[in-house]
């Protein structure tokens, strides 16, 4: 029993400690004298690595999710004779939930893990220390561009994901199953509210982007400098990132539906 309490205390302490360390780490990455002219090209370079290279997986999964949604939705709506509502069903579920959540999970798996591995490897091979010895702050030169690139890329990727998913559902619903194209689009247009649905979806995307990238760069920067340590850090990025997305999604959704 005592041992159990002791362990609980230890876990609690180490949790608080890592939250504190990562908070400091984030604030030292974000709140610093802006040197935008120097930072801008670095961020662009990282947006390519983090965002553009994640496009393929985002587009493909968006397409399939949209197509599956259309199939399933058509099957159910058909029972009520309401197949023309398909556009509405797909658009609302994708923009409100599936887009941000699945996009975020894919981002954590694709971009987050590679960020962690890259930074962890730079740490192991003393590249970050040697940068510090040249009086170049690695937080500024290495971490900050990657962080901003992740934060910027995520909402854009999620927007792309949503659009492709709707296109996928159009392909299946209209082209294959024969829903009327005019009804499909006009129902969708009438039911999706820009302020409530689209903006809230993008807010989710932004929050997930911040959290996932933060976890990824933190895990890389503080990875135990061994091969196994980097492996563990990469796993942690994906696990913590995914859990954070799902947990935050619940909180954000309840705030958005309840409060607004």
């Amino acid at each position: 029993m005592i041992l159990w309490i002791e362990n609980l205390g230890r876990i609690g302490l180490s949790f608080c400690q890592s939250v504190g360390v990562s908070g400091l780490f984030l604030s030292r990455t974000v709140f610093r004298k802006p040197r935008l002219i120097r930072l801008f090209p670095l961020v662009i370079e990282q947006i390519y690595a983090v965002g553009v290279l994640s496009m393929v997986i985002i587009v493909l999964s968006g397409l399939f999710i949209g197509m599956v949604l259309a199939l399933q939705g058509y099957n159910i709506l058909e029972r009520f004779g309401a197949v023309e509502q398909l556009g509405q069903l797909v658009a609302l579920s994708v923009v409100r939930e599936l887009g941000p959540v699945i996009g975020g999970l894919l981002f954590a798996g694709r971009a987050g893990s590679s960020l962690t591995a890259e930074i962890g490897l730079m740490q192991v091979t003393e590249q970050l220390t040697s940068m510090e010895m040249m009086a170049v702050d690695p937080l500024w030169r290495v971490i900050s561009p990657r962080f901003w690139a992740g934060v910027i890329s995520m909402p854009v990727l999620i927007a792309i994901f949503c659009m492709v998913a709707m296109f996928g559902s159009y392909l299946v619903g209209v082209e294959w199953l024969g829903v009327d194209a005019g009804q499909f689009w006009s129902n969708m247009q009438a039911s999706v509210n820009f302020r409530i649905d689209v903006v809230n979806g993008l807010i989710k995307g932004l929050v997930f982007g911040i959290v996932v990238t933060w976890i990824a760069v933190y895990q890389g920067y503080y990875a135990v400098p061994t091969a196994a340590g980097i492996g563990r850090a990469t796993t942690k990025t994906v696990v913590y990132g995914s859990l954070a997305i799902l947990g935050l999604d619940f909180i954000l959704t309840s705030v958005m539906l309840g409060g607004w």
Binding site: M122, T125, S130, A135
Partner: peptide
């Protein structure tokens, strides 16, 4: 503090045992 430390490090060079080149 960090600013002053970096000022001093400007006058230091270090050859790392592992080289530590940017890969």
């Amino acid at each position: 503090n960090q600013t002053d430390l970096y000022k001093i490090r400007n006058s230091m060079g270090m050859l790392f045992q592992s080289g530590a080149l940017f890969t």
